[in-house]
Design a protein around this nucleic acid. Sequence first.
DNA 1: TTTATTTACGAAAACGATTGCGAGACGCCT
DNA 2: AGGCGTCTCGCAATCGTTTTCGTAAATAAA
Lengths: 345, 345
Amino acid sequence: MKFEAITIKDIARALNLSVSTVSKALRGSHEIGEETKQAVLKYAHEHNYKPNPIAQSLKKGHSRSIGVIVCNIDNNFFSQVINGIESIAQSKGYNVIITQSRESYEKEISNSEHLSSRSVDGLIISLSAETKNIDHLKRLHEKGLPIVFFDRVTDEIPTHRIIANNFKGAYEATRHLIQQGCRKIAHVTSSDSLSITAERLAGYKQALLDAGRPIDGRYIKFCLHGGMIREETHQALAELLQLPERPDAIFTASDRLSTTTLSQLRTMQIPIPCEIALVGFTNSISADIFNPSLTSVVQPALEMGQQATEMLLSLIESRRPVTQFEKRVLETQLQIRDSSQKRSC
Amino acid sequence: MKFEAITIKDIARALNLSVSTVSKALRGSHEIGEETKQAVLKYAHEHNYKPNPIAQSLKKGHSRSIGVIVCNIDNNFFSQVINGIESIAQSKGYNVIITQSRESYEKEISNSEHLSSRSVDGLIISLSAETKNIDHLKRLHEKGLPIVFFDRVTDEIPTHRIIANNFKGAYEATRHLIQQGCRKIAHVTSSDSLSITAERLAGYKQALLDAGRPIDGRYIKFCLHGGMIREETHQALAELLQLPERPDAIFTASDRLSTTTLSQLRTMQIPIPCEIALVGFTNSISADIFNPSLTSVVQPALEMGQQATEMLLSLIESRRPVTQFEKRVLETQLQIRDSSQKRSC
DNA sequence: TTTATTTACGAAAACGATTGCGAGACGCCT
DNA sequence: AGGCGTCTCGCAATCGTTTTCGTAAATAAA
């Protein structure tokens, strides 16, 4: 099956003009007479002519499309970011090609190469949990592909970055738990190679320090797959619960980790918040109907996507090489709900 | 900024060959000597040559990419479907371009035209809630664009379709509520122009009829935006609660509708399931941690995406025009949780 | 030795669009 | 009338790749 569309040639033939004349008329060139121009425009419109973007891309050397790599779209944070990306991209006439790394280093590489060879004009990416080496992105960047990092970023590549204030978000979450009277606050987080992990961990630690609490490594658990594998989270939880002094609060550092933890604490029939208080780091739109409703740090995901796209497009459309790079930090918000409030116990 | 890649020409020049020879060597043509072939392959590999897919698309008339239109990716059902689509597409070397109609007829039109003019080889689509007229898709289909419908389908276009067994899913959900002893079962559903709405409504009605219950239109509420607009759902709920005989159960027919309804019943402090039992139609991975955990009809979303893609690819890759079209129906599953179980009251 | 066949490669057109340049046609000026 | 500029338009090259066809040389067959 083949999709046949009307081309500039068809118009030229029908109107007995040359291809170049039609092309110029379509673009409103001054070198085409008003009469001819109108005729072309009229015919084109009547026959619903749409320039072939493939041909245009080939000719112009860009595709007016941008690539996105996230670990998983089945995640409220990322799907909201993508909404932001799409809204800006669409308004500026860019296509968005979304791919998922599924937290796999290999897939991240193949996706990035696939996208670049598909001539995307730029890339918006949040690193996978497995990614420790970013040579594949360096290569592309050095060859001139504009890249913007969001959320899980790296400073090894000189380009724009945009993240949430993970440190502060984690700090506030932890401080909140402290204020609730929790004494043993555990932190369940993702792969330690991720920037967000380090930032959130630092916020957690600082809050403890500022409250004069000790930092105990046994209360910090890394889940390399960020909650995507239930057993992993389950294992981490089990270890926490077997500690001589059981934690009376858990601060989870990612979307999936938060829901998985909540789910598993419930199957273990551990009362939340009374036995264990819980604060998540999630953009779930359903956090308020969880049982118990989940206190969480939420990120301005939509805005992050929008701003990332704006930064990328400015890179793409910049006439001269950009040398000044920005690192934007968006504020998070702590939404306090039942899962962390000890006073009701 | 410009992304410069190595081309077939560069190889030709470097090896003192003609472009055509290089091209053939790269594709392993028999008409190229083994020695030359190896030299080309070696050089290409060493310089990380990647054929320009844009040029290939232009030449071959297809792009090895498929377009997807859903109303919203920020929805567990659709993101799971997309996961399915991506998994198959990627394994067959196809790119996926995802767009969102956001339930808008206008956006659906512009997206479909954008995609087709971007030379996608095929389209996988779930209709928007606003869509009543599908001439825009008919046009594309008649011009030869392969289309596969899923979830929200139409029979006005002769092509493959894949849906869940919405009738049966709704039937079982309603029957379950009847078995729980509910006497006044309301149905909150989406726009009545959607195929899924009609199918689920029919299942709901049939279950009532089979139980010898009357069907009362006042207990059926249509939300044109499918829960995307809170006020709309709120309004529907308010009307239901003001009925002389208040419903003692609600069966919601879509993902967002289910969470929104649950959320709003909770803010109204109506005990679930005791005052009102609730059954949703959702693929939320968090349904078990809702408060109360939500009984729901879940669709095999991943499978639906996979099969839709397989059907589309068979259409795309078919040598001759396909005239035999399939309508696949996948079974749903009723996951019974707390929100519908009256016995604990 | 001549003719047929195979092997190995190159020239050129094509995909659809863009664009610099050249060339008629026309009017205007001196 | 000749020269000049202006206005319109077409020619042809270009983007990177694929593919058809042609052709030279090498080999096999006669």
